[in-house]
Amino acid sequence: MKKIFFFILCSFWGFSQTQMPNIELSSVDGESFNVSTDYNETDKLYVFSFWATWCAPCINELDAIHQKYDELKEELNMEVIAVSIDDTRTQKRVKPLLNGKKWSYDVLLDTNQDLKRALSIVNVPYTIVVKNEKIVYISNGYSQGAEEELYTKLKEL
């Protein structure tokens, strides 16, 4: 009986996580974006990369993606959205870091961690790929070269 309950619970959880939640986040410039409705162009790949200013692997991952971003953006019809989970204490570090990095991504602030909680994210870096309003790939953690695995997966999708 416990196995059946566990299977049903896991199946329900997996099913409930196939779409991005309907949550509004702000950009660093104060513009509001809905992660479900503003990023839903048909057949476009949206890479949501969850990061924080205090997370060195997160920044390394976003730097590595940025090196090939312009090329991949055109080739794969993709867009990267960097979602900062910095809280109100560390949020003030986001804009200065972005000024130094010159990333060409949309950067959204999940200051209250609503999106992080809705997606049951425990640790960053955490990457979600969305296509046609469905989550099609998830990656947790980063080590040097992992962006190549992401590129391969994006090409498959």
Rank of each mutant, 00 (worst) to 15 (best):
M1Q: 12
M1S: 15
K2G: 10
K3G: 13
F6C: 02
F6H: 07
L9T: 14
C10A: 14
F12H: 04
W13P: 00
W13L: 15
G14S: 11
T18R: 14
P21H: 01
I23Q: 10
I23F: 07
L25G: 02
S26C: 08
S27V: 06
V28M: 14
D29Y: 12
E31T: 09
E31R: 13
S32M: 09
S32C: 00
S32A: 05
F33N: 07
N34T: 07
D38S: 08
N40I: 00
K44D: 03
K44G: 09
L45P: 01
Y46Q: 07
F48M: 09
F48W: 08
S49W: 01
F50K: 00
W51L: 03
A52W: 06
C55N: 09
C55D: 11
P57W: 09
P57Q: 09
C58G: 02
C58S: 13
N60A: 15
L62E: 04
L62S: 06
D63V: 10
D63F: 02
D63G: 09
A64M: 02
I65M: 14
K68A: 07
E71W: 01
L72S: 06
L72D: 07
L72M: 11
L72K: 10
E79C: 02
I81L: 06
A82S: 11
V83F: 07
S84E: 05
S84K: 01
T88G: 01
R89S: 13
T90C: 04
R93E: 14
V94A: 09
P96M: 04
L97H: 05
K102P: 05
W103H: 03
W103Y: 13
S104H: 13
V107P: 05
L108W: 08
T111L: 10
Q113K: 14
D114W: 03
D114N: 14
L115I: 06
A118T: 11
V124D: 02
Y126S: 12
I128E: 02
I128F: 06
V129T: 11
V130D: 01
K131I: 01
K131F: 01
N132L: 03
E133T: 14
K134S: 10
I138D: 01
N140G: 10
Y142P: 06
S143I: 03
S143W: 00
Q144R: 10
G145E: 05
A146P: 00
E148H: 06
E149N: 13
K153T: 11
L154V: 02
L154C: 04
L157W: 01
L157A: 05
